[in-house]
Design a protein around this nucleic acid. Structure first.
Lengths: 120, 120
DNA sequence: TCCATATGTGAGCGTCTGTACAGATACTAA
DNA sequence: TTAGTATCTGTACAGACGCTCACATATGGA
C-alpha cells in the first residue's frame, strides 16, 4: 500500500496540523476542482487557445480554423470536440458547413486575465 | 513534407479566406499565446489547482502541502518548482522550512471565474 | 440514386506529464 | 563535525495527450 504509507509518513512529519485542517475545510469539492482543472487543461494548449481567441471575434467553420492553425481538419475536429464537450464552444449548421462560436462568456474573461499575466 | 501538404490542401478548401486573414491579423503573438498556454496548463492539473486554492488562504510549507494533497513530498516539490518557474508562487525560508505563497494576483481571479464556470 | 464536399470518429503512434524512488543539498543543533 | 530534518533533483516508467491516417457520417446537387 504505497499510498497509505506515503500519507502516514507525511502526517507524522507535517509542521502545522491546524493549517492542513483549515486547507481541507476550505478546499473546493472534488467535482468543482475536477471541472476547473478540465477547463484550464482545455485552455492549456496553444492551438486550442488560438482558436478560442479567434472565435472571440467571430464564428468560423472547421476548414477555416484548420487553415488558420495550419493543421489538418481532422486534428481540428478532434480539438473542437473536446471544446464542445466542455461547453466552451457550440456550432450551428449551414448546409454541410458547421460554424463554431464561443459558448461561454467566462472564456473571454479568462483569456483577458491570462494575457495580462503574460504581459508581466 | 506532410505539414506543407496539409496546409496547401487546407488553403484550397477554406470557405472564407477573408475570415482567415482577419483571424491572423487579430491573433496574439506566438510568445503571448505560448505564455498563456503555459499558465493554463499549469492550472490544468487537479493537484496544482488544489494547492493554488489553498494558498489563497495562507502560505504553507512543503510537507503540509504534501499531507494536504496526500502526495509524496517529492511529487509536491516537483509541482511547486513548475509553479515557481511560471511565477505563480514564491517562497520564504524560515530555517530549513520553505513557506510557499501565491505570487500572482491573477491566479485568484482565474480561480474565481473558473469556479463560476464549473457551477453552470 | 450517385457523387462531391464538409465534418466526425476510431485506432495507432510518438511525445509529454505526473509520480515514485533514490540520492543530493540546505539548514539546525549538539 | 555529525546527525537529523526539510526540501530539491535526476531518473524511470505508466498513463495521458495530440496528431495522422483511414474510414464513417451528413448534407446537397446532378
Amino acid at each position: 500500500m504505497q499510498t497509505a504509507n506515503t500519507y502516514d509518513r507525511c502526517t507524522t512529519r507535517c509542521i502545522n496540523q491546524k493549517r492542513i485542517h483549515t486547507a481541507n475545510e476550505e478546499a473546493l469539492s472534488d467535482a468543482d476542482n475536477h471541472n476547473m482543472a478540465q477547463l484550464f487543461k482545455a485552455m492549456g494548449d496553444a492551438n486550442r487557445l488560438k482558436v478560442l481567441h479567434a472565435l472571440e471575434q467571430d464564428e468560423m467553420c472547421v476548414c477555416d480554423i484548420a487553415a488558420f492553425l495550419r493543421l489538418s481538419e481532422s486534428a481540428v475536429s478532434h480539438q473542437l470536440r473536446l471544446l464542445r464537450q466542455l461547453k466552451l464552444v457550440s456550432n450551428r449548421r449551414v448546409g454541410p458547413i458547421l460554424y463554431y462560436r464561443l459558448n461561454d462568456h467566462h472564456v473571454t474573461k479568462l483569456l483577458q486575465i491570462a494575457l495580462e499575466h503574460s504581459k508581466e
